[in-house]
Design a protein around this nucleic acid. Structure first.
Lengths: 149, 149
DNA sequence: TTCATATATTTGTCACACTAATTATTTGTA
DNA sequence: TACAAATAATTAGTGTGACAAATATATGAA
């Protein structure tokens, strides 16, 4: 195989990632979910792992700090998340879901799992494992840290 | 496998696609390439397929029209691309590489192929085929059109 | 204690993605 | 011919992503 054909992975990867995000975002919009795909990722992680600082959350969702700051700003404005001052460290906040945030997660979770399934039609569990392995290998080759579960 | 674990593909896909782009962009910057990764995609396609309209190019690189308009604006400002009025249709332009654009493509192509190789360490041709197949299946499942080569 | 260094978060800037709306022009049909 | 519908490109608005720099606070070593 030529270097040339080989280099197409970056194009296909980018194209597919955008399609996945775009498809989900359209469904979110159609269902009046009132959050974006990235905002959902943040809500979901806060729900699963409980209150934490922005730095901890940033590491969890692999977003950089400025990006996370802005996502939290939007989620605060919508009152799904609260910044609670850290009792010992005045530099940092603990991020808490509000009651409304908790309800939002409960309401959306099953709908979003359904939306995510669509991509996986005609593919099986083995494909999924292969896909995960290759994605993580690429990620690591380029300097990324993969946390084992 | 639970629906839950399964839905992680979207997270891994997004994370890896961002890493691939970020890694390339860093290398571009370090080498003073004077273009972004997406600008390169446009230059490369104009070089390979010759002058074409923005609509044709948008379909080729799978970017939407507003995004492409701005990329072309930037490439015009850098004088790598010219908008030439279409002789028959005054609504549209033919996009041409300038001499400087042609030189840029010639100079960058081998360097970029090298950068792209890094991601593929520890993976073989079979992995590549699998990866391509899965990405394209997902893309199609979500309504994308895959052009066969 | 003091001061350099580290950490948590924010701000600013540029680029890209998606949607919706707008402008200019062309095409198809009555 | 005339006019509605389609097409090419742009503009506007919002969200996200990367990077650099700024601000505020905490920590560790002299």
């Amino acid at each position: 195989m030529t270097q040339e054909q080989f280099a197409k992975y970056s194009f296909l990867l980018d194209r597919t990632a955008r399609k996945v995000k775009q498809y989900a975002q359209q469904q979110f919009k159609q269902g009046d979910f009132d959050v974006t795909v990235d905002q959902w990722l943040v809500l979901k992680n806060l729900s699963e792992f409980g209150p934490m600082s922005q730095t901890e959350l940033a590491n969890l969702v692999f977003k950089d700090h400025p990006t996370l700051t802005r996502i939290i700003d939007l989620l605060s404005k919508k009152e799904y998340v609260k910044r609670v001052p850290h009792p010992q460290d005045r530099r940092s906040f603990q991020l808490h879901l509000t009651d409304s945030g908790v309800s939002k997660v409960t309401a959306l979770r099953p709908k979003i799992l359904q939306i995510r399934e669509k991509a996986w039609e005609n593919l099986n569990e083995e494909d999924f494992e292969e896909f995960k392995r290759i994605l993580n290998t690429i990620y690591q080759n380029l300097g990324g840290q993969v946390i084992e579960e």
